[in-house]
Amino acid sequence: MNWVKYAGKRLLMLIPVIICVTFILFLILSAAPGNLARQLLGQDATEEQIEAKQAEMGLDKPLLVRYGLYMRDVVRLDFGESWINGESVLERFQNRLPYTLMLSTLAMIFAVAIGVPLGIMSAIRQYSLLDYGTTFVAILLFSLPAFWLGTMCQILFCLILRWLPTSGITGWKSYILPTVILGANTLASMIRMSRTSMLDVIRQDYIRTARAKGAAMQVVVRKHALRNSLIPIVTQMGITFAGTIGGAVVTENIFTIPGIGTMLLNAVKSRDVPVVLGTVIFVTIIVGIINLAVDLICALIDPRIDLAS
């Protein structure tokens, strides 16, 4: 089946997902305690002022109507303004997306470029010192929480050694620590995933067949094992990448990177509904695209996958 058609179908399938997710979010946020109008105007505001503010925010209408109005605007690509500071949601998202994307991409490259080769080599030299060593490192990275590792690295590299800036984005050096911290977890899972995948593939019969044909082990690994072991790795990469888009909150917080994670978290905490919904819609679309890309790549690698089915 033509992959363009397939891609189109998949993207269209995102629409029901978005509707479902936003509706559930809408319900939850509406049910949560906390009256934003009252909060914004302060304790001393009169009831009329609060009611006026609520009408302005559209909070006086019933839930379904509000949801309908919101979705109608979304279709017109109007994602509204933040209830807290009036800034356009779309603009705010566009300002912050590049940082998050940059950070996520760098973290993925870091994790994959180091983790996959290490994992594969561990698998080939199973039970060697290299194997034990990388497994140890991987488990360590898994276990150390990001906020601890991040703060420790800050103290070491920024305060004591003064090699790197503490926070914010002031140049290419600012990306080094956040990339490593964000990528640490993914690195660990890449090592484990590659190792497991390669171990699995090496035990397959066709590897034995290839060797029986007279191919050296190195050649066999490169030509036969690698491609087959990549399939689960690519899938894992897709899942992780999608996760780092919205989930880099801790890293963003520690290193003060103006990314999407913090924006979303703050919006939820302060019940800024337009920002929450807008961000979730954008993130859903991005994640959907990433998943699609991953599936297409897998189909490219593995001829057994038939897109039409």
Partner: peptide, 17 residues
């Protein structure tokens, strides 16, 4: 400067940032 994490604030202060 908006710095969300208090640890980062203090580290930055000690650092001279």
């Amino acid at each position: 400067q908006t710095v969300a994490d208090t640890n980062t604030q203090i580290l930055g202060l000690q650092n001279g940032d």
